[in-house]
């Protein structure tokens, strides 16, 4: 799923990968792949991560990982960093999710009474990136669908999600709701439909697998 998600990154893009699963997408891009990775804390042109022994104490990504620069990297302050996001210069962001609605609403920042550390830069990424892709497990730990007719948790941004990658499939958010694009090997259309909390349109004919 993470490897398949890496195909979404086209040459020349400016991309922000959220904390968690999305960060791993970079492992599937070749060292010479032309892309500019952005991190909210003030770097465009993220290089490989470093172990503590060789880390620069002043050089982290927004998740706290010790990263590096590459030829052409630039540092900037937090206002410039989000000017880049809000003005439409960010071509793509990949984020995690608690819930995604069939209208593309995203909930990923707060579970009232349980998890409320603040949204950080997540609202701006979700609301202003030109394309928002979600990487998540298809269901939560209790087995409940994360793809729903409507989000029950506080919203991060409305109508922002274009495509969802899960362990069961690749699902687009369309004008008429969720549409299955690809299905994971070993999963049946009935299984993914059952695990989805909203109507899921199946493609005509054979469903591509990944």
């Amino acid at each position: 799923m993470v490897a398949r998600a890496a195909d979404e990154i086209a040459p020349g893009m400016v991309v922000n990968l959220g904390i968690g699963l999305p960060t791993k997408v970079v492992d599937h891009l070749g060292p010479d792949f032309p892309v500019c990775l952005h991190t909210e804390n003030g770097l465009a042109g993220i290089g490989p991560t470093h172990p503590p022994e060789t880390a620069d104490r002043n050089l982290i990504d927004a998740g706290g990982a010790y990263v590096s620069t590459i030829p052409g990297s630039a540092f900037f302050d937090s206002a410039v960093s989000f000017a880049l996001v809000r003005s439409g210069r960010l071509d793509l962001t990949m984020l995690g999710a608690f819930e995604v609605s069939q209208h593309g609403d995203l909930a990923n920042w707060k579970i009232p009474g349980k998890f409320s550390p603040g949204a950080g830069g997540g609202i701006e990424l979700a609301q202003k990136a030109r394309r928002v892709i979600v990487l998540t497990t298809h269901t939560d730990r209790a087995g409940n669908p994360k793809l729903k007719e409507a989000c029950s948790l506080p919203i991060t941004a409305r109508g922002c999600v274009a495509r969802v990658f899960t362990d069961m499939g690749v699902i687009d958010v369309t004008d008429t709701g969720f549409a299955l694009v690809e299905i994971a090997q070993g999963i049946t259309p009935a299984e993914i439909t059952e695990a989805t909390g909203a109507p899921l349109a199946l493609p005509k004919g054979d469903i591509p697998t990944f």
Binding site: A79, F82, A119, G120, I123, E124
Partner: peptide, 27 residues
Amino acid sequence: AQGILAERIRAGGAGLGGILTDIGIDT
């Protein structure tokens, strides 16, 4: 929101009264 905190501070530093934004308008 992180960039809005930055802009509120920048506005304060620039002698402005505030900013207009649609960030978080649905939240």
